[in-house]
């Protein structure tokens, strides 16, 4: 029991209120964006501080979803996220398992991995390699150059090291080889961990903007984040959402279109967030344990 006098109670109260305000500041932008995205032209013109629309309209969403560019980019992002996460898990899990066994040479390989956390060649040489391997303007350029996150690899290896050695011994006595041990024993045992890593990788792909502006010049292959930047930050919703205009007689106000685009882009993240939260504290802790 901690000491709690009158001053302690007051301090507790102040602390609770301060935390509430901080948490509110994280939530308010979404509340505001949500309200504006459903507002009508009259509300946008009339009100300087629009917190609740008098009339709920979905014009902005119709407008955004009418745009070929937005819909195509949405599917590009979905594709890159699904395929990319699969590649991530495949490469990370196999290498992490291999390095968790006592094979000759693993120290050197492990050092190679850790060294990339300390020093990287940088943007231009990596760009040259991506170009030389023929990935420019293909969706693989958003997947292969980031196939393994070294930090995730190290954390996953740590996870495999914690699996009891007896399981390996039993499997080896039963005549299993390492491929079989990996696919039939290790992977099924690691399902929760793999789910957690998948979520992290998936969020990274969904949010990735940097790779796309480096490697993708063709607007047909732009992921969602690139289009969202043009809609909101460059402030050119009509140019970014080609194809939307012809479908509607009275285009909705640009503000509401911008808000609708932000929400549509963020929705999948908000949707997986509860699952992410379940895993990430454990995941971060795993990485903090030293060998």
């Amino acid at each position: 029991m901690k000491y709690r006098g009158v001053t302690g109670r007051i301090a507790d109260g102040i602390n609770a209120v301060a935390l509430l305000l901080i948490a509110f500041s994280m939530l308010f932008p979404f509340f505001y964006i949500f309200a504006v995205s459903f507002s009508s032209l009259e509300d946008v013109i009339r009100s300087d501080l629009l917190l609740w629309p008098t009339e709920w309209v979905t014009d902005a969403y119709e407008y955004v979803l009418n745009s070929d560019q937005f819909v195509r980019s949405f599917f590009v992002t979905v594709y890159v996220t699904v395929v990319g996460t699969f590649v991530n898990i495949l490469f990370t899990a196999t290498m992490a398992y291999g390095l968790s066994r006592p094979v000759p040479g693993r120290r050197i390989i492990l050092f190679m991995v850790v060294f990339t956390l300390l020093f990287q060649a940088g943007m231009i040489p990596t760009y040259m390699v991506v170009k030389e391997t023929g990935l420019i303007d293909t969706l693989w350029s958003l997947i292969l150059p980031v196939a393994i996150n070294p930090f995730n690899l190290i954390v996953m290896r740590q996870f495999f090291l914690n699996i009891p050695e007896e399981l390996h011994e039993a499997a080896i006595i039963d005549g299993a080889n390492h491929l079989q041990i990996f696919s039939r024993i290790i992977l099924p045992l690691s399902k929760p961990a793999l789910a957690a890593f998948s979520l992290f990788y998936a969020v990274t792909h969904w949010n990735n903007y940097f790779s796309a502006i480096l490697y993708i010049n063709d607007p047909a292959k732009w992921p969602l984040q690139v289009v969202l930047r043009q809609i909101v930050i460059v402030n050119e919703p009509d140019a970014a959402l080609r194809g939307a205009q012809r479908m509607m007689e009275n285009p909705p106000p640009p503000e509401t279109v911008q808000m609708a685009a932000i929400l549509l882009t963020t929705l999948p993240i908000l949707f997986v967030y509860p699952f992410l939260q379940k895993y990430f504290v454990k995941g971060v802790m795993l990485g903090s344990v030293k060998e």
Partner: peptide, 24 residues
């Protein structure tokens, strides 16, 4: 088999992390 499992990841590091270092 263990080396086979390590190989794809190792190739990734050589190609996209270490080859660019030569590019320096």
């Amino acid at each position: 088999y263990l080396y086979l499992l390590i190989l794809p990841g190792l190739l990734y590091f050589l190609l996209y992390k270490y080859l660019p270092m030569l590019g320096l």
